[in-house]
Design a protein around this nucleic acid. Structure first.
Length: 561
RNA sequence: GCGCUCAUAGCUCAACCGGAUAGAGCAACGGCCUUCUAAGCCGUAGGUUGCAGGUUCGAGUCCUGCUGGGCGCGCCA
């Protein structure tokens, strides 16, 4: 419908150009928006306002000329000029209703597009160090990252989900020492406990597994414990694998799976870090000072230069980061999105600067970043800070166990990434209309219930009958619902392009509201077969779009509540 | 102090590359189940979009300054 209007306006515009009313060289991006107020029709365009200046005419006068030049179409019932010069289009009922069979025919593919044209895009997210269970912040990253991937897949991209983890470094050494202390029977309260050691209860589980000689099969690691308390390297390997497996189980429970786990240690073992350093030196943006090697990141917008190689010979953390991203580039990802916590935002400038300094043609804005703000968890209005297992933070597993996967995913993905999120456990648990997840799922279940009723009444849905009588869907509530359904593809498109999964959640709220309104206003199971089947068709189309939308969020669509 | 980010109804949040009278839900109040799931619907009330300027036909949206919250600012990761 929207496309129809755009093409009609385009023809009108061409006519005005021929008549010399509008200069030939003006080509405004014609914008047609669904109206907020149904008194303004179904769609409105600001074309006349856009053309006013180049044409040197009053917007309302131009709008009139445009409408006169508009080709006749049976999809349009009425066109009006309103306000400062908006062109309001009232769609013919049967034209609006065409969306219903279109959705039913498209099924699961409704809302999908080929925009991405099969281009490769990589999304890196979660990327937690294997030093403990995933926390809520990781959960937010997992929800946003995975939904982004689903959105990109739905818009035709070839998506790779990647998880990068630091399995080398100081934090891992600390992990190994902590586990070793437990292996030797120490507790965090003992004086001999390692300084800054990990104190969570899970460390003891790792130690017990190690002493028992357990074998761990993580996604990419298979380690059998040496059970030797003095072999720190063996403890390290076991602990990393153990916690990787634990994180993996958390992610599976959350419905998130990765295509690639990338080990930081591989960058060292394959000499990629050293190679990157040599390239940076060759690029000419480095210098030696105070016994250290510096990268002149100020050449690329940083506020001060950064040390690459410390005077003790070790590299600072962002050097392997640059090496890692060079590797992504070399793997052919022209589009990369890094989803991470906003507490790491200072790495953005550094990594990009490092990539620029390579002087190998990487665009300055590459990679893309989506940064999410912190998550605060509350129960009974009070902040929850601790979990039994991790000690110092609330784990993702705690939330999944307590409020369920669907609600957890929905809540974590339903807010803009760059605003702080308060996760209200009571709200997420509540089986009531306070809870947005249930509100949407209930709409889906309601359609299913009507369909069951149709079956049990011996009046099964007949699509052929529905197709003949779609013009019967003429109640205001039905039209509003159909207009909403028709918008789904562009909502998906926009959410993907702007990297904002929460737009899908918002849309589903609106769609569910339109449906519930319709449900209460218009009875489906009426005696007249033509009316009944067209209404059933509208219900089925709604169910399909809710299902498709929930699937983009990774949330289930139950058939009954 | 510098940088990034956020600020919208009492609360939690929307507002689709700048569009018409800023929208939902919750909380409050009043209605609707002998009819398909009342986990729902309808109605009432609730706003100087943090403050002050600017850009223009038009600003919650873009620009500048300020105030307040979060995060970051190490030869830590």
């Amino acid at each position: 419908m929207k496309d129809t209007i755009i093409s009609l306006l385009n023809e009108a515009l061409a006519t005005l150009k021929r008549r010399g009313v509008v200069p030939e060289d003006t080509s405004p991006a014609i914008k047609v928006d669904p109206t907020k107020d149904k008194a303004h029709g179904d769609y409105a365009s600001n074309l006349a306002l856009m053309l006013a200046k180049p044409a040197g005419k009053q917007p309302r006068e131009l709008a009139e000329l445009l409408i006169d030049a508009l080709p006749k179409s049976d999809a349009v019932r009425k066109v009006e000029i309103a306000g400062p010069g908006f062109i309001n289009v009232f769609a013919a009922t049967d034209a609006v209703a065409r969306i219903v069979p279109a959705i039913l025919d498209a099924g699961d593919t409704f809302g999908r597009s080929l925009t991405g044209a099969g281009q490769k895009v990589q999304v890196e997210f979660v990327s937690a160090n294997p030093t403990g269970p995933l926390h809520v912040g990781h959960g937010r990253g997992a929800a946003i990252g995975d939904c982004l991937c689903r959105l990109l897949e739905a818009t035709g991209y070839d998506v790779t989900r990647e998880f990068y983890y630091n399995d080398a470094g100081a934090q891992i050494a600390n992990l190994a020492l902590s586990v070793q202390a437990r292996v030797k029977g120490l507790t965090p309260d003992d004086g001999a406990w390692p300084e800054d050691g990990y104190r969570g209860a899970y460390i003891n589980d790792v130690a017990l597994g190690y002493l028992a000689g357990d074998t761990v099969d993580a996604d990419d690691q298979h380690v059998t414990a040496a059970a030797d308390g003095d072999d720190l390297e063996a403890i390290r390997r076991f602990a990393v694998a153990y916690l990787r497996r634990e994180q993996d189980l958390d992610l599976k429970a959350f419905g998130v799976e990765f295509d690639v786990y990338f080990l930081e240690s591989s960058l060292y073992s394959e000499n990629k870090v050293e190679e990157t350093v040599q390239r940076l030196i060759a690029g000419g943006h480095t210098y030696e000072q105070d016994g250290a090697l510096w990268l002149r990141t100020t050449d690329f917008g940083d506020d001060k230069d950064r040390v690459m190689r410390k005077s003790d010979g070790a590299y600072t953390y962002f050097v392997p980061d640059v090496a890692y991203h060079l590797n992504k580039w070399q793997r052919g990802f022209k589009q990369v999105i890094d989803e991470q916590g906003a507490d790491h935002h200072s790495t953005v400038t550094r990594v990009r600067a490092g990539l620029q300094a390579l002087e190998i043609g990487i665009p300055s804005g590459w990679p893309d970043y989506v940064l999410h703000q912190m998550v605060l968890v509350t129960r009974s209005g009070v902040e929850v800070k601790l979990s039994k297992r991790a000690g110092s933070y609330v784990t993702l597993r705690d939330l999944i166990d307590e409020v369920g996967r669907d609600a957890t995913r929905y809540f974590l993905a339903a807010r803009r990434a760059d605003s702080q999120l308060t996760f209200d456990i009571d709200l997420a648990r509540s089986q009531s209309n306070d809870n947005p997840v249930y509100y949407v799922q209930y709409a889906h279940a309601r359609v299913c219930s009507v369909m069951r009723r149709a079956e049990s009444d011996g009046l099964p849905f007949d699509l052929a009958v529905a197709r003949e009588h779609l013009a019967l869907l003429e109640a205001d509530q039905e039209k509003a619902l159909m207009n909403r359904l028709a918008r789904f593809p562009e909502v998906v498109e926009h959410a993907a392009a702007s990297r904002e999964p929460q737009q899908i959640a918002q849309y589903l709220q609106d769609l569910a509201a339109d449906f519930h309104t319709c449900y209460n206003a218009v009875k489906v199971m009426v005696d007249d077969g033509a009316t009944r089947n067209s209404r059933l068709a509208l219900g089925l189309a709604t169910r399909q779009v809710i299902r498709n939308g929930l699937d983009l969020l990774g949330v289930g669509a139950p058939e009954e509540m």
